[in-house]
Simulated scan of single mutants.
Amino acid sequence: MIPMMKKSFFALILLCGLSALLLPQSAKAEGSPGKILMVVTNHAKMPNGKATGFWLAEVTHPWARFTKMGFGVDFASPKGGLAPIDPRSKDMKDADNKLFMETEGTQEALKNTQKLSEVDPKEYRAIFFAGGHGTMWDFPDAPGLSKISAAIYENDGVVAAVCHGPAALVNLKLSDGSLLIKGKKVTGFTNEEEEAVGLTKEVPFLLEDKLKEQGATFDGAEKFKVKVITSERLVTGQNPASAGPTADAVLKLLANLPLKN
């Protein structure tokens, strides 16, 4: 390459580099499918004194699928700050659990979750409520939960929940005051499953019964089997085994929904 061509070549490279730095963030993110808000519990103890929290695989299996498809995942909780992991769920033989716990920044994110009421719903294409028994105490009446979920849903977004995560759907109202789940088909941790784990008398209510009371058509599979239901833009999964498939159903919906600014 002759000297003049070399100078022109390097000048072009420098110009391209400077242009990339000067581009607005939205332009640099062009092509990104957007972000998903994952909501986890702050509740750490059951009435019997035993530790609870969110179920790890119900975060990690969806997280692995969402991030693989290029989505950003942010974490929020009713109070903000620390989101406790149910110690019974810390299975490090699970590949997604291991990947999540070893990925830089993930554990820090769970120690410093956003306060749900302070979240800007316009940033998210979907909201995903991870389960774990802790959700039964702090999801149903969490400040801001209805407002943020309704804003995402009514902006052609997706609301999803798995296992005990559908406790978030209890009392969740749209902007017109109607219950999101009324008239929709849903699933979640069944009465039979709650009895099988011996916590029927510990939880403040039975999730299956409460969802039915609020006008949803509840459909559960055999206990601990995979079950996912999509009803319009509401996706629910029955139990921990359903966490990944619930995320897959969310991704399928998002692939066919408009990407809004």
Rank of each mutant, 00 (worst) to 15 (best):
residue 181 I to K: 04
residue 64 A to S: 15
residue 68 K to I: 08
residue 104 E to L: 06
residue 223 K to I: 13
residue 82 L to F: 11
residue 107 Q to S: 13
residue 182 K to V: 09
residue 85 I to S: 01
residue 171 N to H: 13
residue 56 L to M: 08
residue 235 V to Y: 14
residue 219 D to N: 15
residue 158 V to D: 03
residue 12 L to W: 10
residue 255 A to Q: 12
residue 58 E to R: 14
residue 194 E to F: 01
residue 235 V to M: 06
residue 191 N to A: 07
residue 119 V to Y: 00
residue 243 A to V: 01
residue 200 T to M: 15
residue 18 L to I: 08
residue 171 N to P: 14
residue 247 A to N: 04
residue 45 K to H: 15
residue 203 V to G: 01
residue 22 L to P: 05
residue 138 D to G: 10
residue 237 G to H: 03
residue 25 Q to V: 12
residue 188 G to V: 01
residue 98 K to D: 08
residue 116 L to K: 05
residue 238 Q to C: 01
residue 131 G to W: 00
residue 47 P to M: 14
residue 240 P to R: 03
residue 111 K to C: 11
residue 38 M to S: 03
residue 168 A to F: 01
residue 131 G to L: 00
residue 167 A to T: 03
residue 116 L to S: 04
residue 171 N to A: 09
residue 96 D to E: 15
residue 220 G to S: 12
residue 63 W to E: 03
residue 240 P to H: 02
residue 31 G to D: 13
residue 158 V to R: 04
residue 180 L to R: 00
residue 154 E to W: 09
residue 244 G to N: 09
residue 130 A to D: 10
residue 104 E to G: 11
residue 134 G to I: 09
residue 225 K to D: 06
residue 23 L to A: 06
residue 186 V to E: 00
residue 10 F to T: 08
residue 117 S to Y: 05
residue 13 I to K: 11
residue 28 K to Y: 06
residue 123 E to S: 12
residue 114 Q to W: 12
residue 27 A to L: 14
residue 78 P to M: 06
residue 84 P to E: 11
residue 66 F to C: 00
residue 129 F to M: 03
residue 109 A to N: 09
residue 107 Q to R: 11
residue 210 K to P: 06
residue 188 G to N: 00
residue 79 K to C: 07
residue 7 K to W: 14
residue 56 L to F: 08
residue 3 P to D: 03
residue 178 S to G: 12
residue 9 F to W: 07
residue 189 F to S: 01
residue 35 K to N: 10
residue 83 A to S: 07
residue 118 E to Q: 15
residue 107 Q to N: 11
residue 33 P to Y: 05
residue 200 T to I: 13
residue 223 K to S: 15
residue 16 C to K: 13
residue 162 V to A: 00
residue 83 A to W: 03
residue 181 I to M: 06
residue 149 S to Q: 08
residue 166 P to S: 03
residue 75 F to W: 05
residue 85 I to F: 05
residue 175 S to N: 09
residue 62 P to Y: 04
residue 130 A to C: 11
residue 178 S to A: 08
residue 176 D to F: 04
residue 92 M to Y: 08
residue 221 A to S: 03
residue 109 A to Q: 03
residue 10 F to K: 06
residue 11 A to N: 11
residue 79 K to H: 06
residue 254 L to F: 14
residue 135 T to Y: 07
residue 225 K to R: 05
residue 224 F to L: 15
residue 67 T to Q: 04
residue 191 N to F: 07
residue 193 E to K: 02
residue 258 P to E: 09
residue 67 T to E: 10
residue 246 T to S: 09
residue 128 F to N: 05
residue 188 G to E: 00
residue 156 D to V: 10
residue 80 G to N: 04
residue 248 D to I: 08
residue 71 F to R: 01
residue 221 A to V: 08
residue 56 L to T: 02
residue 128 F to M: 09
residue 81 G to R: 00
residue 133 H to W: 10
residue 16 C to A: 05
residue 240 P to E: 07
residue 99 L to H: 12
residue 235 V to L: 10
residue 143 P to Y: 07
residue 189 F to Q: 00
residue 50 K to Q: 10
residue 195 E to N: 12
residue 195 E to Q: 11
residue 244 G to Q: 04
residue 10 F to A: 15
residue 12 L to C: 09
residue 159 V to Q: 07
residue 236 T to D: 04
residue 120 D to W: 05
residue 249 A to M: 12
residue 194 E to D: 04
residue 104 E to M: 09
residue 132 G to L: 12
residue 96 D to A: 11
residue 135 T to A: 12
residue 43 H to C: 08
residue 108 E to M: 09
residue 131 G to C: 11
